[in-house]
Amino acid sequence: MNFKELAMASNKLASGHRSCAGCGFPSIVRTVMKATKKQIIVSCATGCLEVTTTIYPYTSWLTPFIHNAFENASATISGVEAAYKALKKKGKLRKDVKFLAIGGDGGTYDIGLQSLSGALERGQNFVYLCYDNEAYMNTGVQRSSATPRGANTTTTPAGKASFGKLEWKKELMQIAIAHGINYAAQASPHNLIDLYNKAEKAFNTKGPSILVVLSPCPLGWKSNTNMSVQIAKLAAETNFWPLYEYENGKYVLNYEPAKRKPIIEFFKTQGRFKHLLKNKKLLEEIQGKVDEKWSKLKKLCEEK
């Protein structure tokens, strides 16, 4: 797959949707859906993606789509898959169908975690895609368990007595992998070929798989709308968002910066971290955590 082929591949998310300029998820969702030639049914959690693509009487979805509620994209796709299996068993359906559940970080790390866990444990044959923009953007930038420590959100504002969110970001990849699934990958929209390859593997995995993709959000990150791809790239170059995958028990690192950039390079591009830039102690602490997580990941990737 090269960029030309990727651009030419059949597109299942039409233009004309109403996501913000610079939003990360349209290219993420398109790329993921391009990674299979089979029919796809999408179950989408409540959130930015759902509200910007399904404003009645219009829809951007050129493939069957269901939105049920905020916390149940995985349970919903489980029911759809069960219906498919029942009809297939009866010989009423011959097609091979792929099932894709999508949620933002709120619908995945937080309110939808139980539903996701249940579907992973049951071994439902589906791909879960989390577009992670690190806060509840649809409701106006409130913190989620995916918000990184130090980020300014509307429920963890920086003030005289606070530097923003106090807690560290939850490790979704590790939680998903702990279910004993066969494929999990972390990806970013600055490297769509890598995302495509991972989505292709996910669709070809037997049983559940998960894609966790960083999704820049100019509104919530307080960044320039023309900078989203560069910011996503910086996330990888600073090791803030490593590109890696977990395949049948093995970790693989997909990108290693020749010299990792300091985390401040990533923070400088976004207003949500503006208040941190002069907080040397906190910056050091966060840098320490990034480096520690990176070396843990490297160790996992070196395991044979």
Binding site: A75, S78, G79, V80, A82
Partner: peptide
């Protein structure tokens, strides 16, 4: 999730 799955199946 039981009702969510039931909705998914019925929609299918």
């Amino acid at each position: 999730s039981a009702m969510s799955s039931a909705v998914g199946a019925s929609a299918a």
